[in-house]
Design a protein around this nucleic acid. Sequence first.
DNA 1: CTTACAATGTATGCGGCGTTCACATTAAGG
DNA 2: CCTTAATGTGAACGCCGCATACATTGTAAG
Lengths: 199, 199
Amino acid sequence: MPQAGGTYHHGDLRAACLRAARELLEEDGSAALSLRAVARRAGVSPTAPYRHYADRDALVSAVAAQGYRELAEYLAAAHPSPTTPDELAAVAVAYVRFALDRPALFRVMFAEPCDPNSEERVAATAAISEYVRGVVGGAFPGADAEKLSTTVWALVHGLAFLHLDGKLDASTPDVVADQVRGAVHALFTAPAALSQVRA
Amino acid sequence: MPQAGGTYHHGDLRAACLRAARELLEEDGSAALSLRAVARRAGVSPTAPYRHYADRDALVSAVAAQGYRELAEYLAAAHPSPTTPDELAAVAVAYVRFALDRPALFRVMFAEPCDPNSEERVAATAAISEYVRGVVGGAFPGADAEKLSTTVWALVHGLAFLHLDGKLDASTPDVVADQVRGAVHALFTAPAALSQVRA
DNA sequence: CTTACAATGTATGCGGCGTTCACATTAAGG
DNA sequence: CCTTAATGTGAACGCCGCATACATTGTAAG
């Protein structure tokens, strides 16, 4: 009886596992994200989570999928439908800030190959891809949305990862934001760049 | 006696561990990179590697450091001192190809925070940073080498990671190469982009 | 040549982890 | 009420990282 006054059935162990996993992730990094630790934190026996997640990968994928959805919200909050380079840069800054605020989660989302066994995860990643393409395509209707969105996503994603790895100066949030804005503007204020990626 | 006719002393277990680790990495992914598996493959007792690596992280860092050095060679082989956008694009293509050819190694190199306890590793990463800055600075002497090199590195690094994660079309090497070239050209053929990042 | 020592590899053991399987408890529906 | 499926428990297996004590061997000083 792991819970003092607890009932035998937890109620919503699935959600509790997800919450516990997120906490462990931010507290001790992804190495500490074990099914057993999650079970302990949820106040449940070591094998109880297997009723809700097939294996550790399934739990990790669920965490990642939740991360993708949160990222989408976070970007939308930065600007719902950016059109100018400035607005796009604001979204890019939000992307990098998201990564720096939740480093372990961001790594879980992108550091491993996306497990194709998790429908939830592939759906969430597809949604992010769609979002990026939609935003870039909306801002630059004449350009090849596919290529251009890939380019800008890669740029922002790369900045996020390099910052995460401590390869760049991330001393203050402002420094980071300026860096990101500068890089995005370099890409978007360039007529030659746009013509380069047109269909 | 793990080795049939083997001697008690291995001879060069340190190097053998590194080799075994690389093999395991490419065969079964980073999850299979355990000190015990390395020891098995080297034909040695499970704890023997501890004589040469303080812990698992130390071995991983050594593998990563070797990866950084190989990456530097690989880029230099693509073009020793690029100056034109075309030449820089060729180096960028090599960067992404390196990542796609050695996915597990590339992830080890970049997916976790760089362990500051490994002098070898920090030295190798610093060398890569220097290399990138030098190449970009040499190609565009007027620009702010710091900012510009960060931008182009992030772009290429992001492309590599997105490809690695299957988020982009990596059906054929040519498709990937075209994508990378297009993205780099978008950045470098833009006068406005360059003026944007000048000091 | 011997012998002491440092370097290198071995043996054993601990606790944690992922996972499986048999079993217990509970909720829900005929 | 009683069956049945859902959910949680417990014990067990093999793998892992790692620490400790011990065995073997190269080396070099005496």
